[in-house]
Design a protein around this nucleic acid. Structure first.
Lengths: 190, 190, 190, 190
DNA sequence: CATGAATGAGCCTTCATTCAT
DNA sequence: AATGAATGAAGGCTCATTCAT
């Protein structure tokens, strides 16, 4: 269902690939996309050659990082959606996506794959979450827990915005909670 | 108040500086910070040498761009604050700052100069707006128009977040208005 | 007639450009196209940056080198053609082109720009020589000094081939002369 | 005669070696020496490791390719020389060598192993053909079919040159034939 | 023996910054 | 003061070669 594995991939190769992905996620997130490939490779304990064997381009690496994040998000979203009442599920999911992406608001933004120039590789996982979110939104609206005039685009924008807001309050959990209160109260029908 | 002008600056030099600043604002905003200095210089109709005479560093140029934006924002904020009732002034000002920064959420974020690594040059204008916003916030809270548990940091974070959200809805003014409704309703006391 | 000079080009810049062209010609010719750009720059007494300012690509440099050779050839060809009788002019010109390109048979081959993938920049100068050679050939044929069944393509091929042959006899002028005798005798009508 | 086989070589190993050689010949000839080793290996259906087991260096592979060509040429030359009259044998052999090397003028040039920097491995087969050609040349000269003032070096140079000339006329057999006529007529005593 | 993942030196190219004109 | 040519440190990427599986 998730595309044929090109090949089983040798044990060590798989480990390297995973480490590269982990390191790249960490590095891109904390220090931006400007970090040299060589540094990422070194941090992963491999040579540049290995990095480029697994990801033919720096951009391909970035893409893979985002795809993985998106897929993780999608998985948890699905899980949550199945476990609770529509309204509760909606708000829990909102929280989840935000918590998932503290310090990574770009990832949440990448989620809005409706845009034109978004890399095709991101389209699929992004669409998957969007579909989920769409259902959750509708459910919550039918349950009367969310303003009925909001659409999916507004929801995505609010997710990106809330994530951005949270970034500035990393150090203050109480303040973050207040942001949630503001947004959630704003989402409710007048 | 904004630092002594080193020297009166010849007429043409001043014109060049202004053009450089305008062009840089436009270019950085629309195409990102990655644009080569030479291109900015050319677009401003001067040589690179001239650019570096006015701004010793590319980063200094970027800083100058942001300072100017911040100063503009501060001026309008002051004006607005003086013209209206506390509560109205607060919401108008929120709107203003967001509208000012569509497609430029980084500028709004720069506004949160309380952060550690923010360039010192941004501190002063940022502090100025923050002071204004602080007063507006307090005023609106005393008027009972805004939740009393919110502090300046939360407000700044919400501004940055809302700006980010708006970026994704550039093309849809009605949706943007709905975002305002959500945020404003969320800001009101329960 | 040869395209508008983009700009007069500062004295030192022109000198650098010329030196780069000279060095590149020498280096590409004696050691092949694989020589690193940095080495060429160093040999010309400039930094890599300067090389790439003048020639945006390594390939562009190579192209420029060949264009210049071709233009030199064309100029001398025109001169020769004007000075002598058709038959004599034809053979003198053949000799000239070969002597011009000892150790550089690739240049002579580049002359055959009829090929498809030849860089467009080479087309013009190549065509110019081809036109000249065509006239010389026809003249010599009408004078009865060259087999009438030969066309321009064959002439170009023979030039490339003779040049290649000469490369192997660099050290032996007498042997080279014998090659000329063979080729020239072969060119004459049965 | 051509060096002791290190070991009998297992059947599959021998097959791999042969395939590698075939593929490399094809690839080097049609696309140049710049083609990555890995690609050659893949085209031969083996891993890079295998390639490097058989040929310790890319250059060694290239050498082996040329040695094989040279040996083939030598064999056919011997055969031809034995079958015909001296003069006819000489011209037939010239033709043969050229036809053998259309699009591969480098191979014919490698034949001139008298040069200094030629790899030692090429020396032996090259010398073999040279000896053959020397005899054919002398024979043809004694038969009065070839100018007596030509030596082996000139013959080798003419072979290389003619091959180069033919490369440019790949598409036009009639023109190629005319080149032969020119060269052969040039070779005949005045 | 075969495989192909790993390595890392080296290449081309860009761009912020300096400095001669 | 302005200009734009020159500089050279990096950066992304390739590929011959090695070595663990």
């Amino acid at each position: 269902m998730s595309g044929a594995q090109e090949r089983p991939l040798r044990a060590d190769a798989a480990r390297n690939r995973a480490r590269l992905l982990d390191v790249a996620t960490e590095v891109f997130t904390t220090r931006g996309v400007g970090v040299p490939t060589e540094e990422i490779a070194r941090a992963a304990g491999v040579g540049v050659g290995t990095l480029f064997r697994h990801f033919p381009t720096k951009e391909a690496l970035l893409e893979a990082v985002m795809v993985r994040r998106l897929e993780t998000m999608a998985a948890r979203t699905v899980q949550l959606a199945a476990e609770s009442e529509p309204a509760e599920a909606f708000f829990d999911c909102f929280r989840l996506l935000i918590d998932q992406s503290v310090g990574k608001s770009d990832f949440v933004q990448a989620l809005a794959a409706g845009g034109v120039d978004v890399h095709s590789a991101l389209q699929e996982p992004s669409m998957a979450i969007q579909a989920q979110l769409g259902e959750l939104l509708t459910g919550a609206q039918q349950a009367g827990a969310v303003r009925p005039d909001l659409g999916l685009p507004e929801l995505l924008a609010l997710l990106a915005g809330t994530s951005k807001a949270m970034e500035q309050l990393k150090a203050d959990p109480a303040a973050r909670e207040r942001i949630f209160e503001v947004v959630f109260q704003g989402l409710r029908p007048c």
